[in-house]
Computed example of a mutant assay.
Amino acid sequence: MKIAIGSDHGGYSLKEMIKEHLQSQGHELLDVGTHSLDSVDFPDYSAQVCQKLDVQEAELGILICGTGIGMSIAANKHKGIRAALVHDVYSAKMTRAHNNSNVLCMGARVIGDELAKMIVDTWLSTDFEGGRHQRRLDKLEGESC
């Protein structure tokens, strides 16, 4: 699977670990940055990941900052993005099964490496259930949202 991944300085170390984990599973990654611990602005990296999905250069996206909150807020401002802030395995499963999320957001200062790997693996391996859930997603695409 082709996955766009990005982080700010607060999520840089976790992003690098997740990259290695996913590459070892054969996924292709588009790393939009950041590429160091130097302070940067999270909306810039969120926008780049969302852009990759918008032009179909990637199927899914992963964004990481200190808490995951800023990245999820920024990502959800982009049309067609359903970004979910996830800090547990159950939520990772449900956000794909019921919400068909296409961007996973995590907080590096909130979860550890092993939990992050389990969240990512669960998120990637869970299929969207469709049915009544699709009807709800269709409402998100309407003008009222």
Rank of each mutant, 00 (worst) to 15 (best):
L53W: 05
A58D: 03
I111L: 07
D113M: 06
Q56V: 09
D31F: 05
A83W: 01
I73D: 10
R96I: 05
A83T: 12
A75G: 04
D8V: 07
C145M: 11
L137V: 14
G6R: 06
H9F: 10
S36R: 01
V49Y: 02
E143A: 15
Y12R: 00
I18A: 07
E129Q: 14
T67Y: 09
E20R: 13
G61R: 06
A116R: 03
C50Y: 01
V49C: 01
I81R: 00
K77R: 15
V103C: 05
D121V: 06
N100V: 10
R96V: 02
S101K: 02
M17F: 12
Y45C: 04
A47G: 08
E129K: 14
G68Q: 08
S24N: 15
D54H: 14
R132D: 04
T95C: 08
I111H: 08
D54C: 06
A4S: 15
V32A: 02
D121W: 06
C145Y: 15
S101T: 13
G142P: 01
K52P: 05
V103K: 06
R136M: 09
G70S: 11
T95Y: 00
H87Q: 12
E16C: 12
L115P: 09
S91P: 02
H133V: 08
G61S: 09
V89F: 11
W123T: 13
A108H: 05
G80Q: 05
C65F: 04
N100W: 12
D44Y: 10
L60C: 02
C105N: 11
K15H: 03
R135M: 06
L104E: 04
I119Y: 10
L30T: 14
A116L: 04
L29Q: 10
M71T: 15
Y12H: 06
P43T: 04
A84L: 02
D54W: 03
E57K: 11
R132Y: 07
G33A: 08
Y12G: 03
T122K: 13
I111D: 07
Y90R: 12
A4I: 04
L140F: 15
A75M: 02
V32D: 01
Q25I: 03
K15N: 03
L60V: 11
G107P: 00
H133Q: 03
R109E: 00
L60I: 08
V32L: 00
T67L: 07
G33Q: 08
N100Q: 11
S101D: 02
